[in-house]
Structures are given as C-alpha cells and as structure tokens.
Amino acid sequence: MRIGTLKTDYAADEALFDTRLQKLLILLACAAAVLFPFVASPYWLFLACLCAINVASATGLNILTGYTGLVSLGQAAFMSVGAYTVAVLEIHAGTPFLLNLLVGGLLTALVGIGVGIPSLRVKGLYLAIATIAASVVLHFVFAHWPLTGGMQGLSMPPARLFGLALDQPFQLYWLILPVTALMVLGAANLFRTRVGRAFIAIRDRDISAEVLGIPLLRYKLMSFAVSSFYAGLAGGLWAYFFRVVTPESFPLVNSIFYLAAIIVGGMGTILGGILGAVFMTMVPELLKFVAGLVTPFYPDALALLAPVRTIVFGALIVGFLIFEPHGLAEIWRRIRRFFHLWPFRT
C-alpha cells in the first residue's frame, strides 16, 4: 500500500521524486553507483560505462523521438560529430576534457539544428529518411576530411585530470557516470517546464499546439538541438572511452540500436530511455554468456553470435511494438501500481 503521499504545498507535488520510498530508492541507487567500482571487475566496469554512454544517447533520442514525435535515424551520426570534435580537440588543442565535451555537444547541436530545418516542411517518415541522408553525408565528410583522418580515423590520448590519465574503466567510470546522471536529470527537469510541455504538445497534435501559443519551428529545432547536444556529449564520452574514432564507429545500425532502445524501454518516459539503453546493451552480453554455455555442446555457437544478435535486436523491436508499445517503463509502472494497492487489491 502506498502511504505518505500527503503533500502540504505545490512544490512537494511538483517534485521529481514525491514519495519517501522513492527518495530512499534513489539514495540507495546513488550509494550503489559509488560503491560499484570498488567491488566490480573491469569487465563489469566496462559494461557499466558502455551502458551509461548509451543511456545518455538514448535519453537524447527520446527527447526528440519519444517526446517530440520527430523520428530520427541519425542519432549515431550525431554521436560521431561529438566524438570527432573531442578527438580533434584532444589531439590538436589539448584543451581540458570537460571543455572538449561541451564544445562537442554544442557543435553537434548546431549540426542537429541544420538537420532539423526540413522538419517544418516534412514530417514523420520523410523526416526519418532525411536523417538517414544526413548520416550518409556526415559519414562521407568524416571519411574524406584530412582533419578527421580519413578511413583510418583518429587515435587520441586519454582524458587528463590533474595530470592523471583517465584510461582505465575504473577512472572513466567517474567521468562518464556523473555526466550521464546530470544529463538524465536535465532531461527529467525539462519535462517539468513549459519547454517539455511544448515538445509533447507538438508530438500529440502539432496543429493545435500552434494556436495555443507554441511556435512550431522554434520548438522543433530546439528539440533537435537538445537531442543532438546529448548525442554529441555521448559521442564525446564514447571517444574518451574507446580512444579510437573511425567513420565506421557509428554506422546506421547504431542509430537503429538507439531507436530500438527507446522503443523497448518506452518512448516518452525518462525511465524508458534508461531501461531500454541498459537492456539493449546487456542483451549481446547475455547472448555471449549463453553462447559460452552452449559451446561445449555446439562448438560453433560463438560464430553464430553476430547473426543471432541481429535477429534478437529485430525481434525485440517488432515484439515490443506489437505487444508492449509502451515498453519496459510500462511494465515497471504496472509492477509499481500493483504494490501501491497491495494487499488490498491483487
């Protein structure tokens, strides 16, 4: 049974986490996140960082696609802009990493606005196709521009903090996780204000939104800007994490991956972006684990890993769209609701 939800002022009712239990859970999660690197193996730390990067990017895509209703198949390409910016700055300028990340994000936001300009004229699928086209163009630019190292791409030095190189998952964890957490918090805040409401209004009924006082182009472009800013930051984190950026680092398949992540997690919910990105990052690892178990009996299992993963991705997209269109977040909500009423109604 849910208790303790009596509120005495509007601020309490507008809070992100409004029950004591929720606050407790968040506190526990933070504590766990702080303790995690000290107990986890490098493999798990590696995965945690990867999950966090994907959460950051998926949250960005969720703002654009899940909340504003503008489908993009360019999220990976936007990430590449951030990644290349960070790599170039790190190699040629040697500026501090936080500045590099910020510049990467801002530059990506500019690119995002450019890609978003057709969004007033074309909608829906046409826009999705325009973002594919933008991905192709960006890929070409990175593969041919001397500054970005052509097909070889760029190898970059690690991020440095007070002379300390952040080159192990343990150290990178302390960079990636807080940045991601701030980004998710920012996204959650966005939807407590008029900006977020405008995004949702555009998604649900863009024509009447205009008559109610929302300038469409401005907010569509703003959504593109925020979303690609997130992608750029995520791409920058990605660059610091892998330290090699090539044109093939961010293929179209990755854009589909992020789209799949928000579909599976739940479009238009912050929790959905988190759950979906973590889930989709873990699925290949789970498959690897299963393949390892099966190998003694079926030696070729590892060779099948790549195609099975492709099939599972596809099947997850299709399955969630048909059977659970609101994604994991909706399942989580159902579980919560069950406990809110338990034991009076089961």
């Binding site: 996204a187 407590r192 008029r194 109610l212 006082g213």
Partner: peptide
C-alpha cells in the same frame, strides 16, 4: 500548457 506564451523559462532554465 495554455500559459506557454506568457512564460519566460528558456531551455537552460528548464534543464
């Protein structure tokens, strides 16, 4: 949402 046009919160404030 109806109040949108009379509010001043910008993107950065919102984040």
């Amino acid at each position: 949402l109806g109040r949108h046009a009379h509010m001043r919160t910008g993107l950065l404030d919102a984040l």
